[in-house]
Design a protein around this nucleic acid. Structure first.
Length: 465
RNA sequence: GGCUGAGUGGCAGAGUGGUUAUGCUGCGGAUUGCAAAUCCGUCUAUGCCGGUUCGAUUCCGACCUCAGCCUCCA
């Protein structure tokens, strides 16, 4: 039985989908005014892993992840860049998709955009006003009346009095209550707008997720995910909006992933201490980044550093090394186990709130077992290799051909494969003549350029570091 | 200040009331022309102080430290 840590109850709970064999999941995606950084990558990879695992369990998953393509920052950035909002968001949506593909993130089933959901948003705001959960403020903006929703604060463990006591809350004169938040912002001159019963304007941030999730998945669905920082106020507000509008329970399981940190500090755009995915991919293989993310638990902090990425690269190489040079997997004689408990250990780890670090530890045990049998029992090694690859697939890892993986450029060497092969040929000649000095010189020379040579009985192979 | 969460060996990072996490690294050995890779063996730990218990890193309490949210943020 799969257990998921539910942020709403702060404990692990057995996962029971609303409909048998079917899961509906919504994740808050990007606001597209800049490139994805590693924090965004973590959300994408973590929930991709969740979707993959649920599917692996045989569940039919409908995975929705939205794109926020209208908000203050987007408007500001477009003005700064002197481009249209549409051009800006199109550019960064495409960049996001490129990053995703690189990281082995499968596309969500639906990727709704705020600007394409205005009708749903207007309808929901209308319903909220009818039901007494929203009102038009003195400045023409529409606000959600937080006090009208009794459960407000439950997800984030806050109560209204404490929130009101916070001195940092800016009091907007147009609001009845400082805690109220905007559903519809009336347009200022020069700003983009849509027509609405409350005048021209644009949606507030929180309402779009309520509108889009309800449209794509219904009023009540299984899993809602996102980064920790969205728990309050974004997800709290979503609950208030959706439950206020539909009268139904909104979400059964709330999942929040931990932050990426740099030097013990949250990586964020506002702090300016972020690395974009493409900056990192210029120096590391994409799969290394994915491995790095999954090698710590999704709720734990993830500390970014070059050392940690290097370590992830070394670890992933070990797994690929085990897969390297295996015979094709052939059916084993009856009674000869190809698995020996690895799959069930892997499953146990994943069933426990997606414990990918522990699941990956099983992969390493499997790799050792493969290496042990590689020479003497190639058929057994190949069978174990097939198991390793199939477990890796659940995590979106290890699906590249090992040779291709090792020869792929991790972002450095200017040497072409042909250059390398030529140097290796020269070295083979030297070795035939037992000219070890020349042989070692060539090897060192290649090493200096990030090419590792490995001699074995079968010949010399090479890989990029 | 309020509310969350966390403190594990040289580093990263899991689990567990009594038994090897795992990876990288160090050390010894096998293998290799030498390496690399691989295999075998091996050293380093559970923030601090109490309590519960036959026994706690694991449960409880205090303390210290760190991070996050309370304001846009994945």
């Amino acid at each position: 039985m799969l257990k998921i840590y539910n942020s709403l109850t702060r404990q692990k709970e057995e996962f029971r989908p609303l409909e048998p064999r079917r899961v509906r999941m919504y994740v808050c995606g990007m606001t597209v005014y800049d490139y994805c950084h590693l924090g965004h990558a973590r959300v994408m990879v973590v929930f991709d892993m969740v979707a993959r695992y649920l599917r692996h369990l045989g569940l039919k998953v409908t995975y929705v992840r939205n794109v926020t393509d209208i908000d203050d920052k987007i408007i500001r950035r477009a003005v700064e860049n002197g481009e249209t909002i549409g051009a800006l968001t199109a550019r960064f949506i495409e960049a996001m998709h490129e990053d995703e593909r690189a990281l082995g993130v499968l596309p969500p089933d639906h990727e709704p955009r705020a600007t394409e959901s205005i009708d749903d948003i207007l309808a929901m705001i209308g319903t909220l006003i009818e039901r007494g959960h929203a009102y038009v403020g003195s400045n023409g903006d529409v606000f959600y009346a937080v006090a009208s929703f009794p459960n407000y604060g439950r997800l984030s463990g806050k109560n209204l009095d404490e929130l009101r006591a916070g001195e940092r809350i800016e009091v907007d004169e147009a609001k009845r209550d400082p805690l109220d938040f905007v559903l519809w912002k009336s347009a200022k001159p020069g700003e983009p707008f849509w027509a609405s019963p409350w005048g021209p304007g644009r949606p507030g941030w929180h309402i779009e997720c309520s509108a889009m999730s309800t449209r794509c998945l219904g009023a009540h669905f299984d899993i809602h995910g996102g980064g920790m920082d969205l728990q309050f106020p974004h997800h709290e507000n979503e609950i208030a909006q959706s439950e206020g509008a539909t009268g139904e329970h909104f979400v059964n399981y709330w999942m929040h992933n931990g932050f990426v940190r740099i030097n013990e500090e949250k990586m964020s755009k506002s702090l300016g201490n972020f690395f974009t995915v493409r900056e990192i991919l210029a120096r590391y293989r994409p799969e290394v980044v994915r491995f790095f993310i999954l090698n710590s638990h999704y709720r734990s902090p993830l500390n970014y550093s070059d050392e940690n990425l290097d370590e992830a690269a070394a670890a992933l190489s070990r797994l690929y090394t085990a897969l390297r040079g295996l015979a094709p997997d052939l059916p084993l004689p009856l009674g000869e186990g190809r698995d020996e408990g690895f799959s069930s250990r892997f499953a146990d780890a994943m069933q426990d709130d997606f414990n990918t670090p522990e699941a990956i530890a099983v992969l390493f045990d499997l790799a050792r077992e493969i290496n042990r049998h590689k020479a003497a029992e190639p058929a057994k090694a190949a069978a174990l290799g097939a198991t390793l690859k199939s477990l890796g697939n659940v995590l979106g890892l290890l699906q590249t051909d090992p040779e291709a993986y090792f020869k792929s450029d991790a972002g450095g060497s200017g040497l072409s494969d042909a250059d390398i092969e030529a140097r290796i040929q020269a070295r083979i000649e030297a070795r035939k003549a037992k000219n070890w000095a020349e042989s070692d010189r060539i090897r060192d020379e290649l090493k200096a350029q990030g090419i590792i040579l490995e001699d074995s009985a079968a010949g010399t192979t090479w890989r990029r570091e």
